[in-house]
Design a protein around this nucleic acid. Structure first.
Length: 296
DNA sequence: AGACAGGAGCAGT
DNA sequence: ACTGCTCCTGTC
């Protein structure tokens, strides 16, 4: 499709060693498909394909409007405006972090649109990544608008808007396999649609206050709120603790000691991992998932 | 077959 | 402040 002067664009980002798979398919976002060095997704309503090489990233996308300048937004989404080496250098110099960094070289944090991030993580509770991908795909196919794609390419859809979700019935959402999360997502969309709370206003808040606002939405507890703060608002002091991170922290830092409660682990993390604790968390998470196995 | 998932929300202690 | 139970449903 190439109607209305809307064009295919290509841009080269000279960033070395970007770990595409770990970043795009590691559980931060749920819309990327691909393998190895080639990945496709939809970002801000644009179909995007990214190819990675040792020297950099080649991004290709379909513009949605004349004269629109998407490259900076994509750069921001991919987390390119950040000196990764300097961030990694702030991580504590201990054995678990060294192992995590070695295992996840080139892993970055994405900076996703807040609504998409919030909605996706409301869908995520007690679900594995594959299942979250299924749910999000169904939501997009059924309630998102089609976006321009290259000639003879399969259809792609934008993430559903707040009004389009707010206008759904609980039944429609359950049909997208949301289960008990359906009323949560619906309630959140309706709160936003009513204007009682705004996702933009959160930008101006300190992290603890921002977290409190997010936890006011149904289906949003501490963990989901921290994911949204980290992946959607770039708050690198947010530290989501899910069962994987919990197990990893317990095992890597408190081996043989009495089991720490969630609260204790949060306290430990806040003082141990430094200014980029959230970044460190993603490294630990990936490491725990890929190297420590599922049978602890 | 049956437990178990990258949790939230609630009651009970 | 912690524990334990329930909420859907696909996957292993």
């Amino acid at each position: 499709m190439n109607a209305g002067g809307v064009q295919r664009r290509v841009e080269w980002f000279p960033v070395k060693g970007y770990a595409l798979e770990a970043t795009l398919a590691g559980g931060q976002a749920f819309r990327w498909r691909g393998h190895g060095d080639v990945w496709e997704g939809v970002v801000d309503g644009r179909w995007v394909r990214v190819r990675g090489s040792a020297e950099g990233l080649e991004a290709e996308w379909m513009e949605i409007a004349e004269g629109s300048e998407f490259a900076p937004a994509l750069q921001r989404y991919l987390g390119l405006d950040l000196d990764l080496e300097r961030v990694v250098a702030t991580f504590p110099d201990d054995a678990p972090m060294r192992a995590s960094c070695a295992a996840c070289r080139g892993l970055r944090l994405l900076r996703q649109p807040a609504w998409e991030c919030l909605a996706s993580f409301i869908c995520s509770s007690t679900k594995q990544i594959v299942q979250i991908q299924q749910i999000v795909s169904l939501l997009c196919e059924r309630h998102g608008v089609p976006v321009p794609v290259p000639e003879s390419h399969a259809e792609a859809y934008a993430f559903p808007t707040i009004p389009s979700i707010a206008g759904c019935t609980e039944r429609q959402l359950r049909d997208c396999k949301l289960g008990f999360r359906a009323p949560y997502l619906l309630g959140t969309a309706q709160m936003l649609e009513s204007g009682a709370v705004s996702l933009e206003a959160i930008d101006g808040l300190e992290t603890p206050a921002a977290r409190e606002v997010l936890m006011g939405f149904p289906g949003v507890g501490r963990k989901v709120a921290d994911c949204v703060l980290l992946f959607g608002y770039g708050r690198q002091d947010a530290f989501p603790v899910d069962v994987w991170v919990q197990k990893a922290l317990q095992r890597l830092y408190f081996e043989g000691k009495r089991r720490r409660t969630l609260r204790q682990l949060l306290e430990f993390s806040a003082r141990h991992f430094g200014p980029y604790a959230g970044y460190a968390q993603q490294y630990l998470f990936q490491y725990a998932r890929s190297h420590l196995g599922r049978a602890w």
